[in-house]
């Protein structure tokens, strides 16, 4: 089953079409990696799915609800998604209050928040940092907090924009492990933007390869990596594409 259906989606910045996707579906409960070189429109696509920006034409359907230039997702639908930005911005509060933010705005019971926080923090190795001020964290710790902050609300759709860019291998491993667990345990659908093919290979069930705002190829990760039909896709995954 598909959780997202994208139809005739375009986005134009300053007269330049940065995104043009006639059709793309995202399978529910799976990890989809959007790969491609910088400037391919990967982050723009995430911003559109999350409703941060509006498309110029076309629609995105979350299950059956439509989002377009004139239609917005309902607040209830927006709350079923979470987006992790490439740059982890910490709120000027404790690590605990950073991770708890999404639960607090959903008016969740304090005791329940405490339980969820303890679980999430131990998963991501943040238990000792809960009382620390979040703005004093290292890059790797902030990256993990920002992932925990999104995951703790157990979204149906988790969007991640280069969640491990600039992180050391240990932190990358922790975050990738968490992403896999979210899908396995909670059936979370994950859409992760990455320009790291090795990460896409390790994580993804499905691959969407983008170039110049267009989807060049998409499909099951095994097929794309083992038998890419498109030459540009082949060049990218073999590291022969200069960009």
């Amino acid at each position: 089953m598909d959780i997202l259906k994208i139809e005739n989606l375009t986005k134009v910045y300053n007269g330049k079409t940065v995104l043009d996707i006639p059709k793309l579906n995202i399978e529910a409960g799976k990890i989809t990696a959007i790969i491609g070189p910088s400037g391919a429109g990967k982050s723009t696509l995430l911003s559109l799915i999350n409703g941060i920006e509006k498309p110029d034409t076309g629609s995105i359907f979350f299950e059956n609800e439509e989002f377009s230039k004139i239609k917005s997702f309902s607040p209830a639908t927006i709350r079923r998604m979470a987006l992790v930005f490439q740059k982890p911005v910490m709120f000027n509060a404790s690590v605990y209050n950073n991770i708890a933010y999404g639960l607090k705005i959903r008016k969740m019971d304090k005791t329940l928040i405490g339980q969820k926080l303890t679980d999430a923090a131990s998963f991501l190795g943040l238990s000792d940092l809960l009382d620390q001020k979040a703005i004093t964290l290292s890059g790797g710790e902030a990256g993990r907090v920002s992932v925990a902050r999104a995951m703790v609300i157990k979204p149906d759709l988790l969007l991640m924009d280069e969640p491990t860019a600039n992180l050391d291998p240990a932190n990358v491993a922790i975050i990738e492990d968490m992403i896999k667990k979210a899908t396995q345990i909670y059936q979370t659908t994950v859409v992760v933007v990455t320009h790291n093919m090795f990460q896409a290979k390790r994580l993804a069930d499905n691959i969407v390869f983008m170039l110049n705002g267009q989807v060049v190829s998409e499909g099951c990760a095994f097929d794309i990596f083992e038998n890419p039909l498109d030459q540009r896709t082949q060049a990218f995954i073999t590291g022969n594409m200069i960009y």
């Binding site: 709350r79 979470a82 930005f85 933010y101 705005i105 902050r149 609300i153």
Partner: peptide
Amino acid sequence: DKLVKLTAKSLGAT
């Protein structure tokens, strides 16, 4: 930082 606003929004804030 504009990302504070976007982060809050992306976590489901009204």
